[in-house]
Design a protein around this nucleic acid. Structure first.
Lengths: 151, 151
DNA sequence: TATTGTTATACTCTATAACTATA
DNA sequence: TATAGTTATAGAGTATAACAATA
């Protein structure tokens, strides 16, 4: 079914170009919204990655960077009162990053102020929203390299 | 049509999360492929932005960064033999960045070596490919802030 | 006077390596 | 011996400001 349309099936190269353009535009919108609140995109991304408490090491994994970088990023979030470090229960080596109420509020504001992104989403039909979301969900595990492994 | 499915229409927040995850994973695949060829992601992005000759200033616009940064990025591409500067015909102030044959070959290799991206694309049905491509095309102008203006 | 490209400067992100305190 | 977090360091990206050449 669906072979009556005159639409051409896009090549991998065309899909790559489209995805790269959308990804870059999304990121710019995100970075601009974060900057309005005095956060770099890395800091804002970190803030969004600690909605549940996360050990420093695991946060590095989520951010896709070396563990040594997380120190400075969390330092800044902590100095701004957006997150704080807590001692872990079982292992005294690990520190757990916990978002504060103010951090959560700033995060929500940043996300709410991504005007272009919201504008783009609201111009989509329900069918398009469902399609985009399900395609992303299907593609993400492969793209992120989680073929069968956990975490 | 399409109201028989039990699928729920995703919220803006859910779409943002999905898009952010896919965009980040795509970017990591791109950066890793570029690094294998000794290029930073900025340099590789610049290389992909000069498939047609582009003035330095316009390249800065495409990369979404200040013009002063482009000098160093193009310096490196030039020292690697992947691009070179040419004088512009009408205006002696402007320099035009032109990709070399070797630059084009490296660019094609980088794109071809984005294994996870190709893997993700090839797991998609033709319908999904068409849907993703058309959604991206529809959403991009809004997301990139080009509501009606040219270039 | 305005614009293009460059340089100088400073700040941030990033990885590597070495250090500490725990395990 | 290995691991979690930190520190020190160096390289690259980024923006701001000032500059030379040209328009």
């Amino acid at each position: 079914m669906g072979s009556t349309a005159t639409t051409t099936v896009p090549t991998n190269a065309e899909l790559m170009e489209a995805l790269a353009a959308v990804g870059a535009a999304y990121f710019q919108d995100f970075a601009a919204a974060a900057a309005r609140h005095g956060l770099s995109s890395s800091q804002a991304k970190a803030l969004g990655s600690v909605q549940e408490p996360v050990p420093m090491r695991a946060l590095a994994g989520r951010l896709g960077c070396d563990a040594s970088n997380v120190t400075g990023i969390v330092d800044r979030l902590e100095s701004l009162g957006l997150a704080h470090r807590e001692a872990a229960a079982g292992d005294r080596r690990v520190k757990i990053v916990v978002i504060t109420d103010e951090g959560r509020e700033i995060l929500n504001r940043i996300r709410g102020e991504m005007a272009r992104t919201h504008q783009a989403f609201e111009a989509m039909t329900d069918e398009q929203r469902v399609a985009l979301h399900s395609i992303c969900a299907q593609v993400l595990p492969v793209l992120a390299g989680r073929t069968g492994a956990a975490q």
